[in-house]
Computed example of a mutant assay.
Amino acid sequence: MITMVRELRQAPELLTNLTRREVKGKYKRTVLGQLWSLVNPLAQMLIFTAVFSFVLRVPIPTGNPSGLHNFAVFLLCGLLPWGFFVNVLNGGMGSLVGNENLIKKVAFPRAALPLSNAFSLVFSWSIEMVVLLVALTLLGAASLLWTPAVVVVMALLFLFAFGVSLMLSVANVYFRDTQHFVGILTQAWFYATPIVYPTSLVLEQSDKLGPLLGSWTLYDFYRLNPMERFVELFRAPLYDNAWPPLDSVLYCVAWSLVSVVVGVWVFSRHEKKLAEVL
């Protein structure tokens, strides 16, 4: 891990240029350009709000102590971090295969490719989060005061997502089926995460079912999902204007550290073989 960090620190210009290329190339030759980074989550918000708020009528909690009760912003507080996570995974997973010619011809730290993808997504994600903060403030929430806490949570999610993307980028070099498998996995993972519904609904069903394995309930298994905790960490300061539970903070810190350490270890072991395998 130390070697990879040192190599990346010695190539700041490369990382900057790759990140700039990702940012400019993502919406190249489009009319709206970077505005698409706002249009996509807003379109998802409108669709999910129509389905889950008006058709299925999923109940949401009132923010405590913010007093907010708005399905659209409740949804965005979970949808934006989830979108960032999935985009980092998908972009990082294809970063090595998509730059096959560059890897075979030029010697440079290969980790710069998935890292530049993640950095480029931070740029658009930051714009989305600023818009969300402004919207929450206009609705009467004191979310701007919680900006430092939100930035810390964003950093933790970045580390977690980047670590997973390193592992997937290597896996996709050896097994091109990885991208298809991950696509199915993230679809299931989305609905296993409280984005379009509150965790209270899972708790209600868990209480009805009772213990499933020993003393473990459905809710206990559900809370093992790291993205469930990350969404909680975002909703607490943004929607509730409150500190997130300490156990969830420690859980996300642990997942972020483990993800980065394991991701760097896996990537480092295969980095020298990438040109041959590709």
Rank of each mutant, 00 (worst) to 15 (best):
5 V>Q: 09
7 E>H: 10
13 E>Y: 15
19 T>A: 04
20 R>I: 12
29 R>S: 14
31 V>Q: 12
33 G>Q: 03
34 Q>E: 15
36 W>I: 12
41 P>Y: 12
43 A>L: 15
47 I>D: 05
48 F>E: 10
57 R>L: 09
63 G>W: 03
66 S>E: 02
66 S>W: 01
69 H>T: 10
75 L>G: 00
76 L>K: 01
82 W>P: 00
83 G>E: 06
94 G>M: 08
94 G>I: 08
98 G>H: 04
104 K>S: 09
105 K>P: 08
107 A>H: 10
109 P>T: 12
113 L>N: 02
115 L>Y: 03
115 L>P: 00
115 L>C: 11
120 S>G: 12
122 V>L: 07
133 L>I: 07
139 L>P: 01
140 G>I: 07
143 S>E: 00
144 L>C: 05
154 M>H: 04
154 M>I: 09
158 F>L: 09
175 F>A: 14
176 R>G: 03
182 V>E: 10
182 V>W: 07
183 G>A: 08
185 L>H: 06
186 T>D: 03
189 W>V: 13
190 F>I: 05
194 P>Y: 01
195 I>N: 06
219 Y>R: 07
219 Y>F: 12
227 M>G: 02
234 F>M: 02
238 L>R: 07
239 Y>H: 06
241 N>K: 01
242 A>P: 15
250 L>F: 06
255 W>S: 01
258 V>M: 15
258 V>N: 01
260 V>L: 08
267 F>R: 04
272 K>M: 09
273 K>V: 12
274 L>W: 05
274 L>D: 09
